[in-house]
Design a protein around this nucleic acid. Structure first.
Length: 854
RNA sequence: GCCUAGGUGGCGGAAUUGGUAUACGCGCACGACUCAAAAUCGUGUCUCGAAAGGGAUGAGGGUUCGAGUCCCUCCCUAGGCACCA
């Protein structure tokens, strides 16, 4: 018997399939159902493909091949997320251009992917570092800018004083530079921000309509962190409240009044607000600087807070530090009593208004702080209306006490009245912050903006003629009004290509290496033609991956990001498969950009990915995450060489549920190899016996075959590949044992079922051994008929008083009485009920009979 | 601390409207083939028990004729968030 050579067959069919353009979608075929199966595209690292990639790409490949056999038009593309830090760092180390590194790595990835027989349509391959691709990334950025969704803000960055460079968060390990170990400093730097918060509500609400794992939806909801509450202004002692109200109605700035604005979700507890707390960065501190009676103490606290890294804050646990702002008094608008103000770093400047009203009786953090600083704790909500019936802090609902005219009311009922009384205003607050979009790096998309001082002056300074100079500037976009002097490039001038540089090293300043290319930096203002300088920061790696799924649909379009007709055909993506590590960042950023493009009418659906499937990570055989340093990394190339691509594909699907984390165990792969060899051997038998007698129809076998078709079909659609393979194994064993009576047609059906999992070997048997002309991939997916599945005889479980006693075999759909009779007739079961009084019988047809007797 | 999944043989895991727990595979043991080994094939493999029978799905309770599956309390593991007012 001819042995199966995986290497030869894989080479042969890889080439043939490519020649035959098996996976090419010229355009969606009219009338065909469409399916867009998308993988999270990889970062082409120097390490090559990971067995984790193989897992998720095999899953998507099975889905793609299955639906092609079901006659769907299937879009299944692949590309490269090739900007990013590792390529840049490698370029610094080896003094080669990241372009060269990326090219090499992409070639290796592509070779590996093809070796595994993944059925991608390579005519749609994209690369985020290709100027023809990032031209449109920049184009989308301009849309964001013009809509006023990009703005500049001072943000702290990680600075390594030894490497003299800005570090990404992942380059900071334990507060130290990952490369040299020097403690990292925080420096403020003006950064481009994207206003993702403007889309917070839509990002939250639209989660309801998409088929994503609940886990990922929960993570996004928590990340967005919407909470409904009220803002309340506290006035300083001596301020005239009526005057303040008038001023605030007129929207005039009230510098003297210095109201302190707080956000709270519990306005009903305001009678218990015994002090206020502001964050260390709060402007009030500077405003009251001169009247502080303990200025030195406050300054010392602020200094300490500023030097504390986030990590140190967390390391200190929940211990709450803070100091009084001596001599500063505010009025609680409910009680009209004066209350003190503290500065404490448990209040965060970027949440709400950076200030809170502290209600120690009903908030755990305020309670801790009050205890430590001996501040009064006044309970105002009681579960039963009594003053001493609760353990403080009590955060539940109840009846108001110590609350003046509100006493005795249900707290949540009285909230509205209280808010009106203190002039509070409803406010929705989010945890999510805007997206820091600048990177002081070389290897990213250049931001297509220039800064023009002349235009800045024109926008900022009203002209001496007293005119509205601002409106005289033609077509001033929201972005330019928001960022005076920043002028977007003309769309016609895109792409703004990344210039070649001699050195990829950091400049030793806070600027990106691009700032060291004078010929690139100095340019002309697209608006006034005067001298201007380019933005030298680049975009983060997330940018290119925010919209790549759109470009696959129309990858060569030179006139538009995507043709609207094609977009309608394929968006939203039917299934998106990838790791759960992208649950918030990538998947939130991509949804955000998609919604902006929706508002721009570039896309017609509000969400990009209809269904999301997470694959779990493949761990090393030690149960730990695979990493070079642990030495537990498995290279797919080695496994393919040893066992063949089909075996690797199938084994990764057989290891367990797709979404679970699973340890790699090379020993287990032998079971799959044996299974595949059994199929091969059967194929050889069928090839020999072409002239043999047609076997007599065997109803039982036909039933088993059809049940397997049903199971495999349902399991594939539900991504339960492990149990599908198990069903195929069971059928293969059965066929092997009774091969003489198995019709060729049945074996062919079986091959078709296996094809999506192990395309190389099944194709080799189908065309190479059984001499079929067309690819097995063109074969229609087998259909099952319920009439064959129905069994004549079924085994049903017998329980006596709820205890399993055995089984009986009865005709399908047998009645309760028939089943009871069968039990009585069974010599092993009858003794359990004979001579006893049957009090009740529970009977589930074809499943179980439970006989209660005394 | 909060949120989300989970906890089933020696191991990966089946059992998805509550209805025969441990499918399938690995490993292991024994047998066949072989001078021998590997490979392959066959048989067995939760546990106590000679058997009849009993006991097991993290622990303990509950609902039910019947619970791995539903409810309550607790323990443990993984992932996420981390003073969010």
């Amino acid at each position: 018997m001819k042995r199966y050579s995986s290497a030869a067959a894989e080479r042969k069919w890889q080439k043939t399939w490519e020649k035959e353009k098996q996976f090419f979608v010229p355009s969606a075929v009219k009338g065909k159902r469409k399916l867009y199966v998308l993988d999270m595209f990889p970062y082409p690292s120097g390490q090559g493909l990971h067995v984790g990639h193989v897992e998720s790409y095999t899953a998507s490949d099975i889905i793609a091949r299955y639906y092609r056999m079901r006659d769907y038009a299937v879009l299944h593309p692949m590309g490269w997320d090739a900007f990013g830090l590792p390529a840049e760092n490698y370029a610094i180390k080896t003094k080669t251009s990241p372009r060269i590194v990326v090219k090499k790595n992409v070639a290796n990835f592509k070779r590996q992917i093809n070796s595994l027989g993944f059925s991608y349509d390579w005519s749609r391959e994209i690369n985020t570092t290709d100027p023809e691709y990032y031209r449109w990334t920049q184009w989308i950025f301009l849309k964001l800018f013009k809509r006023g969704l990009a703005y500049q803000k001072e943000m702290p960055v990680n600075w390594c004083p030894s490497c003299k460079t800005v570090l990404a968060d992942e380059e900071v390990v334990g507060g130290k530079c990952d490369r040299c170990g020097t403690p990292v400093e925080r420096k403020n730097l003006t950064q481009w921000m994207l206003k993702i918060t403007a889309y917070a509500d839509r990002l939250l609400e639209d989660l309801d309509g998409i088929a994503w794992p609940e886990k990922v939806k929960t993570m996004q909801r928590n990340w967005i962190g919407r909470s409904e509450g009220v803002v309340i202004d506290f006035l300083p002692q001596g301020a005239d409240r009526q005057a303040y109200a008038r001023l605030s109605e007129n929207k005039k700035i009230i510098s003297k009044a210095n109201p302190l604005r707080v956000f709270t979700t519990r306005p009903d507890t305001i009678y218990g607000a015994t002090y206020l707390v502001v964050a260390p960065e709060h402007p009030l501190i500077e405003a009251v600087g001169n009247q502080l009676t303990n200025r030195r103490e406050v300054d010392a606290y602020l200094r300490a807070a500023r030097n504390k890294s986030d990590e140190e804050r967390i390391a200190q646990g929940k211990e709450k530090t803070g100091v009084l702002l001596g001599g500063v008094w505010y009025i609680n608008p409910a009680t009209n009593k004066k209350i003190p103000v503290y500065v404490a770093d448990y209040v965060l400047i970027h949440y709400g208004y950076g200030a809170i009203m502290a209600v120690p009786a009903h908030d755990e953090r305020d309670f801790d702080f009050a205890k430590k600083h001996h501040l009064p704790v006044v309970p105002v909500v009681s579960p039963d209306g009594k003053t001493d019936s609760m353990v403080l802090p009590y955060t539940g609902n109840g009846v108001l006490i110590h609350s003046g005219s509100m006493d005795g009311k249900q707290a949540h009922d009285a909230a509205g009245d209280i808010v009106r009384m203190v002039d509070g205003k409803a406010h929705t607050q989010y945890k999510m912050r805007d997206w820091v979009f600048s990177r002081q790096r070389y290897w990213g998309e250049p931001i297509p903006l220039v800064f023009c001082q002349h235009c800045a002056d024109k926008i900022k300074n009203p002209s001496p003629t007293g005119g509205q100079e601002k409106s005289k500037i033609k077509n001033l976009s929201k972005g330019e009004a928001l960022n005076p002097g920043w002028v977007p490039l003309d769309e016609k001038d895109l792409p703004l290509t990344l210039p070649n540089v001699k050195r990829y090293e950091p400049t030793g300043t806070l600027q990106s290496p691009l700032s060291a290319v004078p010929g690139w930096v100095h340019t002309r203002c697209p608006r006034c033609g005067g001298p201007a300088r380019r933005e030298t920061d680049t975009m983060p790696q997330w940018a290119g991956s925010c919209w790549y799924y759109l470009r696959y649909i129309d990858p060569k379009n030179r006139h538009a990001l995507i043709d609207p007709k094609k977009e309608k055909e394929w968006i939203p993506v039917s299934v998106y498969i990838g790791g759960v590590e992208h649950a918030v960042l990538h998947l939130l950023y991509a949804r955000f950009w998609h919604k902006v493009l929706y508002d721009e009418k570039i896309v017609h659906a509000p969400e990009p990915f209809y269904r999301l499937v997470n694959q779990g990570i493949v761990l090393g055989s030690d149960g730990e995450k695979m990493s070079k340093s642990r030495g537990n990394v498995v290279n797919p190339d080695d496994i393919v060489k040893k066992y063949g691509a089909d075996a690797l594909r199938m084994y990764e699907m057989f290891m367990g549920p797709l979404e679970d984390a699973k340890p790699w165990d090379e020993k287990g792969i032998i079971g799959i190899v044996r299974f595949l060899e059994r199929i091969w051997a059967m194929g050889q038998q069928f090839a020999k016996k072409t002239g043999r007698k047609k076997p007599a129809p065997n109803q039982e076998f036909t039933g088993a075959l059809h049940r397997t078709i049903k199971k495999v079909t349902q399991d594939i659609e539900a991504f339960r590949f492990n149990t599908a393979i198990s069903a195929l194994m069971i059928l293969s064993r059965r066929m092997d044992e009774t091969l003489d009576s198995v019709p060729l047609r049945a074996f062919e059906t079986f091959l078709a079922l296996v094809f999506p999992f192990a395309p190389f070997m099944t194709e080799e048997i189908w065309r190479g051994v059984l001499k079929n002309k067309k690819s097995l991939g063109r074969h229609a997916w087998p259909v099952y008929a319920e009439r064959y599945i129905a069994q004549e005889m079924v085994a049903i479980a017998v329980q006596v008083n709820g205890k399993m006693r055995g089984t009986i075999t009865v005709p399908a759909n047998a009645s309760r009485d028939d089943a009871l009779a069968a039990v009585s007739a069974d010599p092993r079961l009858a003794p359990h009920i004979s001579g006893k009084v049957v009090t009740r019988v529970v009977f589930v047809p074809d499943r179980i009979i439970n006989i209660m007797c005394g």
